[in-house]
Design a protein around this nucleic acid. Structure first.
Lengths: 198, 198
DNA sequence: GGAATGACAGATATTGAAATCTGTCAGCTG
DNA sequence: CAGCTGACAGATTTCAATATCTGTCATTCC
């Protein structure tokens, strides 16, 4: 690597910060560490991020946005609303479970980060429910999901599946039978959305 | 109070432990404190509970059982399955939210205790889902809830409402609009349970 | 002149020695 | 003799001194 050769940019700082977090964990990762990894003084880092908290927030946002982007692809696929809804929820669960199982320490690190950045997480959730709303609205248009308020239905679906995407339940994602439980919840919700009685 | 006059019983130790936990919090509550509160030596406490962990586990179980007992009353009420289901879920949410809002510190204490006593919590959840299963089975019998597997449906309903009873979501229970969100999720689930399509 | 540096003050984290706690058990007490 | 006590060893926690970090800014460098 040639850390000193290129100009210092916010992007490079974020990459270095992710690496430092991966190596040291959230408690011991310092701004000085990040600067050291980049071969600059820590004062230079403060030129791009006003505080350590702002830096951590930016890293958190990047991480969450990567998931959002993956899921956004599913929203516009050429499939029925029900298929897309199942695929979207399944992909969300799969993405989270994979991250948690793949590198538990890194996942724990990001769980700490999300805990301290409520605002960013709130925006991420708003983003995800907006995607869900688009799918359900399509279903409302075609008559598959006869709901009066797709946005409210989207929030309900998102919250009802919380056990399968909220980090505070990560421990349960490796238990035997979670897949059946996930399917059971999704089936129940889709039957609720599909029910014509209003 | 006359702590030295009565005989030392497991029950009295549990009461004293709750008091010590209330006063000192989970991190600083010691067996010595409990013994001091009872006016006995800590050796005597170990006659009734093999370890500090066992003592904390027993306190946790007591606390959880109090909620179970309250809800059990609703299961056998003389109402329709749907009414009982709504009442039961509402009471569960209300009980948890009340505990969390009433005395946040004590609630935090018990959250720590439940985190360290996975087995007891597992039994508590099994107990609650058994209660739910009874209500849904009644609905299956009467045709209100045409589900093939009431126990599986109960688990799904319990998990889908997790946001409204799992302690890790306690922070969100005071947000404005939670009641509407709760109602939306319950409505959606009940519509799913009531749907005849299988 | 715009970007980077490094010394600095106050806040936070680390460390290791001293204090406290857990769990045991031989002996006391009623 | 059944139940309680208190001294004890090893584990854990506390506390204060020490080291490191955060955020600023006058100065240097290209």
């Amino acid at each position: 690597m040639a850390p000193t050769s290129e100009t210092l940019t916010a992007e490079r700082i974020l990459e270095a910060t992710e690496e430092v977090l991966r190596r040291h964990g959230p408690a011991k990762a310092t701004v000085v560490d990040v600067a050291r990894a980049l071969g600059v003084s820590h004062g230079s880092v403060y030129r791009h991020f006003r505080t350590k908290a702002a830096l951590r927030e930016a890293v958190t946002k990047r991480w969450l946005d990567r998931t959002s982007e993956k899921l956004a692809v599913i929203v516009d696929r050429d499939e029925s609303p029900e298929e897309r809804l199942r695929a979207w929820l399944g992909a969300l669960f799969e993405a989270k479970r994979h991250k948690a199982g793949d590198d538990p320490e890194l996942f724990a690190t990001y769980t700490v980060l999300t805990d301290e950045n409520g605002t960013v997480v709130g925006e991420h959730i708003a983003d995800l429910t907006a995607q869900l709303t688009r799918i359900i609205t399509a279903g409302a248009g075609s008559g598959t999901f006869p709901v009066p308020d797709p946005a409210a239905a989207a929030r309900a679906v998102f919250q009802a599946t919380g056990r399968f995407h909220d980090p505070c339940h990560a421990r349960e994602w490796t238990a035997p039978g979670v897949d059946e439980e996930f399917t059971a919840v999704v089936d129940l919700l889709i039957r609720g959305l599909s029910s014509p009685s209003r």
